[in-house]
């Protein structure tokens, strides 16, 4: 008697657990291509529109993540990842590929102006710039900075916000511009003073500075150029400055996960579709040319765009991270 009751209790619990496990087991939409992305809203919207207008509507699901979550997932799950396509910062895709060989080679021609590995296709480039809150600058009687080096000026102590390269690769855009212009030794000096000025406003998230500039918490920040443009167009007292050291870029790319025999053909088609038909749309927000035949609108892109001399690899990032850590 006692045992029977107990048995029923245990069975009951087991059934409940299997029931909720089963909830996901049956899905009739297995044909859908799953796309994991760390891209901004605008970029995802562009990609969706491109896919929809080319007959792929309803054949895919987009799932957005923060860079760090998606990065963690990629490195932890490797080929077991649920996604068929991943859109992510290029150096991250490279690092995941070297770690777990998880992407398959693209089966179509990629006409980029620069050369990229055979397993991904870039679809946009983010450009760094100095962000300012014009109201706060006037309020505090601060001069508008013209270079990244200016941010080391003691006058800006407490008024600037920058990104920590430990937390987000947006910081890399700033460090690249410094290393390129002043060398590693010079960068060390400048960066030490910038961190001193930023104090509590060294952000772990790439969008930290734009948030603080937007909220008026600081007068000046270093972040993504197109975010400042969007805020400015929204009528906020936000503006951007192209630093004299130049604006550097990081690309984001599309890659198809190698799932052996289960790799979906449709996934490859979609990546081809986005890179071939979606760029015009994407360039409205991210105006940096990447492919043959593309030209940048002179107003939308910095006249002083630059590329770092060395290829942007995880090793280089690690080197720059150590440099940054020594400045704290």
């Amino acid at each position: 008697m006692k045992f029977k009751k107990l048995l029923s209790m245990v069975t009951c619990a087991c059934m409940m657990i299997t029931a909720c496990a089963g909830l996901t087991g049956c899905s009739g939409e297995d044909e859908q291509v799953i796309i994991y992305s760390n891209a901004d809203d605008e970029a995802v919207e562009c990609m969706k529109n491109t896919l929809d207008s080319n007959g792929y509507e309803g054949k895919y699901v987009f799932q957005s993540f923060g860079t760090s979550e998606l990065g963690g997932k990629m490195l932890a799950e490797g080929r077991d990842i649920e996604a068929d396509i991943i859109t992510m910062s290029s150096y991250y895709i490279e690092s995941a590929q070297s770690e777990s060989d998880m992407f398959t080679n693209l089966t179509f021609e990629v006409n980029t102006t620069d050369s990229y590995p055979s397993y991904y296709a870039p679809f946009l480039a983010n450009q760094g710039a100095i962000l300012v809150n014009t109201d706060v600058l006037i309020e505090q009687g601060l001069a508008t900075p013209t270079s990244v080096k200016d941010l080391a000026n003691p006058e800006y102590a407490g008024y600037i916000s920058v990104v920590d390269i430990q937390g987000s690769s947006t910081a890399w855009l700033m460090i690249q511009s410094l290393v390129n212009e002043y060398g590693e030794e010079g960068t060390k000096e400048i960066l030490t003073d910038i961190y001193k000025n930023a104090g509590a406003h060294i952000e772990q998230s790439g969008s930290g500075p734009i948030k603080k500039v937007r909220a008026g918490e600081v007068a000046i920040g270093f972040g993504l150029r197109h975010q400042a443009i969007a805020d400015k167009n929204d009528g906020l007292p936000v503006d951007f400055v192209d630093p004299t050291e130049g604006n550097f870029t990081l690309t984001e790319s599309l890659a198809v996960v190698d799932k052996g025999d289960e790799t979906k053909e449709l996934a490859m088609e979609m990546v081809q579709c986005i890179t071939e038909k979606g760029r015009a749309d994407l360039m409205n927000y991210y105006p940096v040319p990447l492919y043959e035949g593309e030209t940048a609108d002179s107003n939308a892109i910095s006249a002083n765009s630059k590329t770092f001399a060395e290829p942007l690899t995880v090793e280089l990032l690690e080197k720059h991270r150590n440099l940054s850590e020594s400045c704290k």
């Binding site: 760090s68 979550e69 990065g71 963690g72 490195l75 932890a76 390269i165 430990q166 937390g167 987000s168 690769s169 910081a171 890399w172 104090g199 509590a200 406003h201 060294i202 772990q204 998230s205 995880v314 990032l317 690690e318 991270r321």
Partner: peptide, 26 residues
């Protein structure tokens, strides 16, 4: 801490940076 730590270095932020920073190192 993600929002308010400022320049106070905490173990939790360190963990996050190691696990999911720009260079994840599990």
């Amino acid at each position: 801490p993600a929002a308010l730590a400022g320049n106070v270095d905490l173990l939790a932020t360190r963990l996050y940076n190691e696990m999911l920073g720009s260079l994840p190192d599990f």
